[in-house]
Amino acid sequence: MAYSDKVIQHYENPQNVGTLDKEDPSVGTGLVGAPACGDVMRLQIRVSDDGVIEDAKFKTFGCGSAIASSSLATEWIKGKNIDEAATIKNSQIAEELNLPPVKIHCSVLAEDAIKSAIEDFKKKRAARQALQGDAAPAATAEEARG
């Protein structure tokens, strides 16, 4: 299979490979895919108090397109508000990387990974707020929007 130049670029120089501390309350972790299907993506975000993704890291078990999709996803969500990041569609990733039809599932997985990481972060934040017993007004408003 021939790869697009963009896939090769990301594959050879992947951005944001690494691990964030999943126990950190400001970190959300998404783990999607399955080893039996040939791809697993773990995407992590560190979110500031005002809901901005300050850092994003990934690790991926998969083909070149899966690795490129995750690398691109982390690049795109960095600096974005979590609500904005959650609107990224797999079709945008597929288009940017010129993925052939047989590789579209890689971009779907990347979208799922972003959503899953944001969801994990929100869950943690909600649990923390419930524990504190006084939800911060800003966060509540954001939750309502999301």
Binding site: P35, M41, R42, K59, T60, F61
Partner: peptide, 19 residues
Amino acid sequence: MSPLYEMYKEGVDLKSIEW
């Protein structure tokens, strides 16, 4: 770059995870 290798190194049994 593999999440699976990291989990293996941490002693996570990959078969115990519901993928």
